[in-house]
Amino acid sequence: MYKIMKKEILNPSVVLMDVYAPDIAKTCKAGQFIVLRIDEVGERIPLTIADFFPEEGLVRIVTQTVGYTSRKLMNMEQGDSFLDFIGPLGQESEIENYGTVLCVCGGLGIAPMYPIARELKKAGNKVITVVGARNKELLIWEDVLKEVSNEIYVTTDDGSYGRKGLVTDVSKEILEREKIDHAWAIGPVIMMKFTALLTKEYNVPTIVSMNPIMVDGTGMCGACRLEVDGKTKFACVDGPEFDGHKVNWDLSMRRMNIYKAKEEIALEKAIKGGF
């Protein structure tokens, strides 16, 4: 059992949890993820490691409510436990001193970006962060990211905070203005796709973090496959980070919708069940 030592609601649909999993906390690196199962009937869902504290044995996850399981998770409290918590999975981010790095994150991508930006800064990079949210209420962790960025820009779709517009608008200005050596984009698939298309125009190598549907997370099932440079890859062992200029985005977007109808059934059960 893996106990929730701390729970913090970051906004109405996003929750942060520190989970006691000392073996993982000791060995994990930025860019990796865990798979958890809430209870005996639960689904295995993957979540990025948003931070880790080897001394305390804690792994931080930040979850957005999208469907049944993430809702069930949102309702868990400090002191409750997950039945299974598996990791660290996936490859770690390739951190080196690239020079100037542009970190573009949107929505839930903000949490997984944090340890990566921190490590990039530690490695000597100038880190320019662009954060996007739909509105002010949904924006999380601006202050946390600020600490590990040399510059930070915030955009909201409705203009309720920061600049009105999309992360790609600000990113374009930055790319015009100065030489960027490397970029990271983490967030909704559509945002990563357009960021990658943009950086391609400027020939800036760009890493994206893919989040396809997964089951085991260990390379055993193939559910997480995607196409990179025309070749089939398993995101859970080959990724989750890939060269954003080589990902087949349309395929990835289609594969996210496999269980749409079933997910609605599960959600209905949740709503009837009272949460």
Partner: peptide, 28 residues
């Protein structure tokens, strides 16, 4: 890599290990 192409491992793992044959009693 079309949507309804499974590996046998994924199909069987969902059904056996995760008990998808009992969906929605089981979540998978």
């Amino acid at each position: 890599n079309l949507n309804e192409v499974y590996s046998a491992n994924e199909f069987l793992t969902r059904v056996n290990l995760m008990k998808a044959y009992k969906f929605p009693e089981y979540d998978t």
